Computed example of a mutant assay.
Amino acid sequence: MTNISSGVDLAGHQSARPSYVALVLGALSVPGSILTWDSGLPGEGWVWGLPLALAAVVAGIVALRGLATARWAAVTGLVLGGAMVLMIVLWTAFGS
């Protein structure tokens, strides 16, 4: 005799929204970090790219810790955000 369960277990899963939020923030941090340097915009990458990059890192960590689906999007957003934070810091430290 087989045991067939008619219920669906959703307790351990979240939606993919946090993962895609991390991805969008990470993608937006790239032009905000790169294109604003020497453009005449006030604050350059510190104002336009860094907040988006930091938010992408935080959103990626939250999505991965919360077992959200679409982990690839969370990791991509986390990597993009981290790379832009590193780029801004290095550009400021070693730029002319």
Rank of each mutant, 00 (worst) to 15 (best):
residue 2 T to V: 14
residue 2 T to P: 15
residue 2 T to K: 15
residue 3 N to V: 15
residue 4 I to W: 09
residue 4 I to P: 05
residue 5 S to H: 12
residue 5 S to E: 12
residue 5 S to R: 12
residue 6 S to L: 12
residue 8 V to C: 12
residue 8 V to Y: 10
residue 9 D to M: 02
residue 9 D to V: 04
residue 10 L to R: 13
residue 11 A to P: 06
residue 14 Q to G: 14
residue 20 Y to F: 15
residue 21 V to Y: 03
residue 24 V to I: 14
residue 24 V to T: 13
residue 26 G to N: 08
residue 26 G to A: 05
residue 27 A to W: 06
residue 29 S to R: 02
residue 35 L to G: 15
residue 36 T to P: 09
residue 37 W to L: 11
residue 38 D to A: 10
residue 39 S to N: 12
residue 41 L to C: 11
residue 41 L to D: 12
residue 43 G to N: 11
residue 45 G to N: 12
residue 46 W to L: 10
residue 49 G to I: 00
residue 50 L to C: 09
residue 50 L to M: 13
residue 51 P to M: 02
residue 51 P to R: 07
residue 52 L to I: 05
residue 56 A to I: 01
residue 61 I to K: 04
residue 63 A to E: 04
residue 63 A to H: 01
residue 64 L to N: 13
residue 65 R to Y: 10
residue 66 G to R: 05
residue 67 L to E: 13
residue 67 L to V: 11
residue 68 A to M: 01
residue 70 A to W: 04
residue 70 A to V: 06
residue 71 R to P: 01
residue 71 R to A: 08
residue 72 W to Y: 11
residue 73 A to L: 00
residue 74 A to H: 03
residue 77 G to S: 03
residue 78 L to D: 03
residue 78 L to K: 08
residue 80 L to R: 04
residue 81 G to K: 01
residue 81 G to Y: 00
residue 87 M to T: 13
residue 88 I to S: 00
residue 89 V to R: 01
residue 91 W to L: 08
residue 92 T to N: 06
residue 93 A to N: 05
residue 95 G to E: 06
residue 95 G to Q: 08
residue 96 S to C: 06
residue 96 S to F: 08
